[in-house]
Amino acid sequence: MNLTVYLAGEIHTSWRDDIKKLAKEKDLPFTFVGPMEDHERSDYIGEEILGEQPSKIFTDDAASAINNIRTQVLLSKSDVVIALFGEQYKQWNTAMDASAALTLNKPLILVRPEKLHHPLKELSRKANVTVTDIQQAVNVLAYILE
C-alpha cells in the first residue's frame, strides 16, 4: 500500500530529505509532498503568475493565494501529515498546516522537541501522536504498514 505523506514545516533545513532517506532505508512505500521548498519562488509565485504587484503587501497576498491553493490540494490528497516544529525558525505556516490537517480529519504526527512542549501543548493534544524527532515519526509510519 502506497501512502501519501504531507511534510509540513519550515523549508530552510534538510529535515524532509532526512525523512525520505529514513523511509527509503526501511523500504517504506510512501510518496512525500509538501510546501514549495524554494523560498524565493514561494514568495514571488504570485507575481510570476499574475504579474507585477503594486506593493509588497499585494505581492505577499498574491503569493499566499497561490501557495494556499497548492497546500489545500496536496493536504487533501494526503493520507498522513507530519508537522515538524523546530527550534530555529518561526513556525506559523507549520501551525496553519497542522490545523488544516486536523480540520480535514487527516492523521497528524507532530514532531517537536521537548523544549517546545508548553507552547504546542494544545496542538499536541489534538495530533494523533506527538514525537520528539523525525526517526520516531518514520517509525510511526512504518508501524502503520505492519
Rank of each mutant, 00 (worst) to 15 (best):
L3T: 04
L7V: 03
G9P: 02
E10V: 11
H12Q: 13
T13R: 09
S14P: 08
S14M: 12
K20S: 12
K20V: 10
K20I: 11
A23S: 12
E25A: 14
D27P: 00
F30Y: 10
T31A: 13
G34Y: 05
H39Q: 13
D43Y: 11
D43Q: 15
Y44M: 08
Y44G: 03
I45R: 01
I45C: 08
Q53T: 07
S55Q: 05
K56R: 10
I57E: 14
T59R: 12
D60K: 10
D61V: 14
A62L: 06
A63W: 06
S64R: 09
I66W: 02
I66P: 04
I66G: 04
N68P: 02
R70Q: 08
Q72M: 09
L74Q: 01
L74G: 01
L74W: 03
S76M: 13
A83Y: 01
G86M: 02
Q88W: 06
Q88A: 12
K90L: 10
Q91W: 15
Q91F: 14
W92C: 11
M96Q: 07
M96F: 15
A98I: 04
A100S: 13
A101F: 11
T103D: 12
L104K: 05
N105L: 11
L110Y: 00
L110W: 00
R112W: 02
R112G: 06
K115Q: 03
K115N: 05
L116K: 03
H118N: 11
K121T: 12
L123R: 00
N128M: 08
V129T: 01
V129W: 01
V131A: 03
T132S: 06
A137T: 02
N139G: 13
L141C: 07
L141S: 03
E146S: 15
